[in-house]
Design a protein around this nucleic acid. Structure first.
Length: 424
RNA sequence: GGAGGCUUCGCCUAGUCCGGUCUAUGGCGCCGCACUGCUAAUGCGGUUUGGGUCUCAAGCCCAUCGAGGGUUCAAAUCCCUCAGCCUCCGCCA
């Protein structure tokens, strides 16, 4: 949710932001009009109500004929107050509904354009030259079979398309990655959290996932609950309706949860393997901080993502995601993409967004400092999404005989140096 | 799933039976000021949040007693629905 004051004072900035996202700039004017109506109807209600309260006091003191006269007026007033109240709350609701549709203002510097218009910021590591090593790399599906780590056939049999079982060493690999991620987060002072995957509409709405991403969210109609696509949702909503003391900020949480995604509109994309699935586990970093620290905090989250990928010895690059490809809450987003040998390209493994005050306003999370109460900023960043990390580790560290070398940093968590093919 | 109790401005709490004087009591904490070698203690004042008005501030107005609705000229107070927490029963990993 955007600050109405900012919107009133500088509507052009909001219009430009909407345009850059490929969204409707006219929405800005609808919001402004609705807000104007909201304010005028609120003023009318306030005046009537003030009169009603004043007369009410006189009624209490009066008696006899005087009282009857007062009651005649107050009865009339009561109807007017009621009508004004209804008009006021309707106007407020309409203004809020419109305001909720507006995406966050872009941070200056965000590259303009669509998915392919990102700016490449950095490249780390070098993809292996399998030709020079003398063998053709296998993709993660094949390696998964050889290791007895991934069972896609039975995943589809039981759960349908984009479902999978991790078996044996595959299951252990996921647990090891999760523990390694949590250990890193804890080392940097994050509070580890295991969060609900099932949340109420306010949490979903508040984090901005019921806007353009709505079609990818599972909704349980019988209970009006949503399955979260990331623990960003329960972590952001954790402090909903709270005022946090500024001296406690930044508050950093590392959430571990299942993530559910309908993957509507991605038919035919990544149909093979576990790159794109309906359910996966993820360790997510989340920060609450002062708005003026948000950009720096964003860089910190990015640095922690890079550290994790580096520890896994994966070649990757960092991109500055273009305006049209940002979530509605994000003012800016950086993705880390790891090299996937059998695809010959970099694929998103982590993503970190600066949501500035957008989510905090919707969820009513504020900070209190010497100057008073004001909204704070929220940021999120993937530390380790299990399935894609498994893909990257298996493919990048595979060896000619079908075994997979375990990166050094992961060994203490997995208890193995090498994943060996299982006898068939 | 069933029965009962509870929910008040950071925390605790008075008020709810019997509607108007609630402009919500008191304590703790916190902030400011005074006093004081220092600290402590004491005294005085302030201290929910949101919205509106206003160039800003001050001031003023409105809303806010878990949420929503109702009764009434008037609701923290009466009625209804819902939520959360607690106790007990049932079921259950």
């Amino acid at each position: 949710m955007i600050d109405l004051r900012v919107l009133r004072e500088d509507p052009d900035r909001a219009r430009a932001s909407q345009r850059a996202r490929g969204e409707d700039p006219g929405l800005v004017d609808q919001v402004l009009a609705a807000d104007e109506l909201r304010r005028s109807s609120a003023t009318r209600f306030d005046e009537l109500r003030s009169e009603q309260k004043g007369l009410g006091k006189l009624v209490a003191k009066a008696s006899g004929e005087e009282k009857q006269q007062l009651l005649a007026r107050t009865k009339e007033l009561a109807d007017e107050v009621k009508a004004a109240d209804a008009a006021q709350s309707e106007a407020a609701e309409r203004a809020r509904a419109l305001l909720l549709q507006l995406s966050n203002l872009l941070e200056p510097g965000v590259p303009e354009g669509g998915e392919d218009d990102f700016v490449l910021l950095e490249t780390h590591g070098t993809p292996r030259d399998f030709a020079a090593e003398g063998f053709e790399p296998r993709d993660h599906v094949e390696i998964g079979k050889i290791l007895g780590a991934i069972d896609l056939e039975r995943g589809a049999k039981v759960g349908g398309a984009r479902q999978y079982y991790l078996t044996g060493v595959g299951a252990l690999l996921e647990l090891a990655l999760a523990n390694m991620a949590m250990a890193q987060a804890v080392r940097y002072g994050f509070t580890p959290m295991i969060t609900p995957s099932l949340v109420k509409p306010e949490a979903m709405q508040g984090t901005g996932f019921l806007a353009q991403a709505a079609e990818n969210v599972y909704h349980l109609a019988d209970d009006d609950l949503y399955l979260v696509g990331t623990s960003e949702v329960p972590l952001a909503a954790y402090h909903m309706d709270e005022i946090l003391p500024a001296e406690k900020l930044p508050l950093r949480y590392a959430g571990y949860s299942s993530c559910y995604r309908r993957e509507a509109g991605s038919y035919g994309k990544d149909t093979r393997g576990i790159i794109r699935v309906h359910q996966f586990e993820k360790v997510e970093m989340f920060s609450f901080c002062a708005p003026e620290d948000a950009a720096a905090e964003h860089q910190r989250l990015l640095a922690w993502e890079k550290e994790f990928l580096t520890a896994l010895e994966l070649p990757f690059r960092v991109i500055d995601v273009a305006s049209g490809d940002l979530g509605s809450s994000a003012a800016r987003k950086f993705d880390c993409e790891a090299w996937i040998p059998t695809q010959g390209k970099y694929r998103e493994l982590t993503s970190t967004s600066n949501c500035t005050e957008f989510q905090a306003r919707r969820l009513s999370v504020r900070l209190r400092d010497a100057d008073g109460v004001r909204p704070l900023a929220t940021l999120n960043g993937t530390l380790c999404a299990m399935t894609r990390n498994i893909v990257a580790v298996l493919e990048n560290h595979q060896q000619a005989d079908g075994s997979v070398r375990v990166p050094e940093a992961l060994r203490p968590f997995l208890g193995k140096d090498v994943l060996e093919p299982v006898a068939r």
